[in-house]
Simulated assay, not measured.
Amino acid sequence: MAALPRLLCAAALALLLWAGFCSSVCVEVPSETEAVQGTDMKLLCISCMKREEVTASTVVEWFYRPNGGKDEPIYEYRKTNHEFPSRFSGRIQWNGSKDMQDVSITVVNVTLNDSGIYTCNITREFEFEIHRPLFQSSRVIHLTVVEEAGEDFTSVISEIMMYILLVFLTLWLLIEMIYCYRKVSKAEEAAQENATDYLAIPSENKENCAVPVEE
């Protein structure tokens, strides 16, 4: 009987792990805010939904505002994709997911003039039996386009640590080589001293040093 509670706990844990594995995970990750000129930049816009909200109809609107300017529509998703005439004409690609939780877009071949503020407006209409409420949310991205990619602080620290480790290993190897060289030199000196002492013994003493053989 004592094993029954353990078995039930193990079964419950297995069911929880299986449910977590089977269910999709949505994480609202902020978008990158720096792009390099001439590359493709994904403007990340994620708005997670609960399980009961999956049946909602979603409308997505993207706006761009240059520094010191006004918002202008550049892209819209309303059951179909629609790109507005703008400086981005022909350079915007839909990069969202089928469940409409990820409603990101990608700007192809960004230029220095593409720096500015991008706004992602999401409107969802839920289809419940009694009423049809609306839910609205926004994501704002301050994008800066640079000519060349700057070095990441983490990569700089990693490079410094690599050089420090390389210097440490070089010093350790040098010390080991010196230690081995001295050890071999001492062994050779000891062998030479023994050979010199042996040669310095008179020949008569050498014969006396021989071990007598018993008949």
Rank of each mutant, 00 (worst) to 15 (best):
S47K: 01
C48P: 01
C48H: 04
C48I: 02
M49G: 02
K50Q: 11
K50S: 08
E52V: 05
E52N: 03
V54C: 01
S57D: 10
T58I: 12
V60D: 01
F63W: 14
R65V: 12
R65I: 07
P66G: 05
P66W: 13
N67A: 13
G68T: 14
G69W: 15
D71R: 12
E72Y: 03
P73E: 11
P73D: 08
P73I: 13
I74Q: 01
E76W: 01
R78K: 10
R78G: 01
K79V: 07
K79E: 13
T80H: 07
N81R: 15
E83C: 03
F84N: 08
S86G: 04
S86V: 08
S86L: 09
S86A: 03
S86C: 05
R87Y: 05
R87E: 11
R87N: 10
R87C: 01
S89Q: 14
S89Y: 09
R91S: 06
R91F: 13
Q93Y: 03
W94Q: 12
W94D: 15
K98P: 00
K98R: 07
K98Q: 12
D99N: 13
D99A: 07
D99Q: 11
D99W: 00
M100W: 03
M100R: 14
Q101S: 02
Q101Y: 03
D102K: 11
D102S: 09
D102M: 02
S104N: 05
I105E: 04
T106Y: 07
T106N: 14
T106R: 13
T106E: 11
V107I: 15
V107M: 07
V108C: 03
